[in-house]
Amino acid sequence: MFALFSALESGVIYAIMALGVYLSFRILDFPDLTVDGSFVTGAAISAGLIVHGQSPFIATLAGMLAGFIAGCFTGILHTKGKINPLLSGILMMIALYSINLRIMEQRSNVPLLGEGTIFSITTSYWQKLGLDSMLNQLFTAIGLGDSLPKTWGIFIVMAIVTLLIKWAADWFLKTEIGLALRATGDNKRMIRSFSANTDGLTVLGLGLSNALVAFAGALIAQYGGFADVGMGIGMIIIGLASVIIGEALFGTKSIARATLAVVLGAVVYRIIIAFALQIEFFETGDLKLITALIVVCSLILPKLLEARKEQARKTKRKLTNGKSMDRKGEEIAASKLGS
């Protein structure tokens, strides 16, 4: 059954990026386009360090740190330079393009062929546990035998890492600093009147957001086996698609619920893309177009559904009113309902 499993695998990795986008877009209410650049920065730094013989774990953390710094710069451009949020992000994104090329020593692509990565290390541990054959037997037994992966290691390890990050985000957003950060996105004037430094919190929030994005970039580079200077194009839209799909499907009642929705939204997005690419007509190059369409749909569909519900409610009201009136009223209501 085509690429469903790899959609799950990459979905849980991209979920970390989506959590970063959630932090800037939803919590801080800051449409941060730095993401397109910082994703690559994470990938480039980790790939570069791995190629130069660093441990993949240190390389990944370094990528994450670079993302944090990049996000802080965007925040400083906005808060201290008084540049509008969109422009601050775009400026940083453009600047990062050159910086990323420098990190990659002016090559547009750094392959990781044959290098040890986080995934090669963790899956080798995983395989020693011998759980793969057990899981595969289980799934064959329930009739899903034909879509099984070589190893479950990547998916399970990444699912755990992603859920840990989700849990950490939930925890952080309930701390004293976290509450002030949320209020910064909600009502700056109010939280300033309760002695919070909204500039500092904006910088911190964008730093954390881009740290997560760069972390995801570092992991995707190791998952795919290369870092590419163009791999971040449209990343912000993918992140946004995940957030919006997740919120629409799974709700935003509480913070914990919303972050779970974002994680699941990222996975659902990957599955939608995998299905779309199964369609004969589409080619790999259409990916961004499909993504844009998904975002447009998920922005418009909920509104259309709401409007239809509203319409149905109105018709119902008319119908009940009609009953208490004469026959003519009833007929009108009935014909309205029929149409």
Partner: peptide, 27 residues
Amino acid sequence: GTAPTMTIEENLAMAYARNKRRTLRRG
């Protein structure tokens, strides 16, 4: 004067923290 998407108790907690240094303790 209040943060609309946050709960009543979260708003109170933020106000209560005004003359302290905000940390990573539970809000």
